[in-house]
């Protein structure tokens, strides 16, 4: 189970515009790896080159030593892909889609039932894909990518355009994917998703990898202040600003927000003053790391 993926000096350009610029990384068997970045950052092009759909201008990709662009059937059998758009046969039911994909990979037919169960679509097995909800379609497309029990799975924005319930529901399916040693590569622009699912993430912008580490290490590296939120009126603003270790204190959205890099002494002081009403404490998230690295200006 699992495969070793090695990417070295990957570069791609369209019409002289460089979209992927000297990207290198390695993924170990059993690892859940995330490629995150704003729209147009080059993450989909990178993924397509790793899948073998596109040949790089320069640089190399190998999956267990084989170039994926060679379309070696032995390697293709070990790869499962879920593409950005839900790519299904027209007017087939959920079960028939799985049966078709299983046949393309010579997978046992028993896998179809197991995949319907994994995707939670047993009672929708006879429904045509066009009549499924967005979340059901996404789960089905992931099930179609897994029906031949691949060693490597590529997921391209699997939760795009899903509502929060459907996203969480899909996370439960995704989280178990690398449990038995499968290598998983995910692209997403939901930072909470990358933080919740990935062992390591590469933050890409302008075709370059800006940072590559575990989400926790990236957040620690940011050394961002902790935000302590209190009910308004718990403490006067001036009093809060006077506490030792406090960087700033402001009223925001009906809450008193105290920022500090020394939460232990600030919380102790607040407890001593009996001013803990409505307390909540928030550390930095992967999103803060991402915005710090890629900037906050709007991109189309």
């Amino acid at each position: 189970m699992g495969a070793h993926i090695e990417v070295a000096g990957l570069t791609m350009a369209y019409d002289d515009v460089v979209v992927v610029d000297d990207v290198s990384f390695q993924i170990a068997p059993g690892e859940f790896f995330g490629l995150i970045g704003p729209n147009g950052a080059g993450k989909t092009t990178t993924l397509e080159m790793v899948e073998g759909l596109r040949r790089p201008l320069s640089g190399t990709v190998t999956i267990d030593g084989i170039d994926p662009a060679s379309r070696d059937p032995k390697l293709l059998r070990r790869i499962g892909v879920q593409l950005q758009t839900s790519a299904f046969f027209e007017r087939l039911t959920a079960r028939e889609q799985l049966q078709s994909f299983a046949a393309l990979y010579d997978a046992p037919r028993a896998a179809v039932g197991a995949m319907l169960e994994l995707a939670g679509l047993e009672d929708k097995a006879g429904t045509q894909t066009s009549d499924l909800s967005g979340g059901q379609r996404q789960r089905l497309s992931i099930a179609c990518a897994l029906v031949h029990d691949p060693d490597v799975v590529f997921l391209d924005e699997p939760t795009a355009s899903l509502d929060p319930q459907a996203r969480r529901n899909l996370w439960d399916v995704l989280r178990s994917l690398n449990d038995d040693g499968r290598t998983v590569i995910l692209t997403t622009h939901h930072m909470d998703e990358a933080q919740a699912l990935c062992d390591r993430v590469a933050i890409i912008d302008g075709g370059k990898i800006l940072q590559l580490d575990s989400p926790a290490a990236l957040i620690r590296g940011l050394n961002a202040p902790v935000r302590i939120s209190l009910a308004p009126g718990t403490l006067a603003l001036e009093e809060a600003r006077g506490l030792s270790g406090v960087i700033s204190a402001d009223l925001e959205n009906d809450a008193l927000i105290v920022a500090t890099r020394d939460p232990v002494s600030v919380l102790t002081a607040l407890a001593g003053l009996g001013a803990l009403e409505g307390l909540s404490v928030a550390g930095a998230s992967l999103e803060d790391v991402f915005l710090e690295l890629t900037g906050r200006e709007y991109r189309a």
Partner: peptide, 17 residues
Amino acid sequence: VVWRTNGLLRRLRLAPI
């Protein structure tokens, strides 16, 4: 056209057929 726009052609290209 349908298979190209819905991505099925790409999907089939990554299948061992």
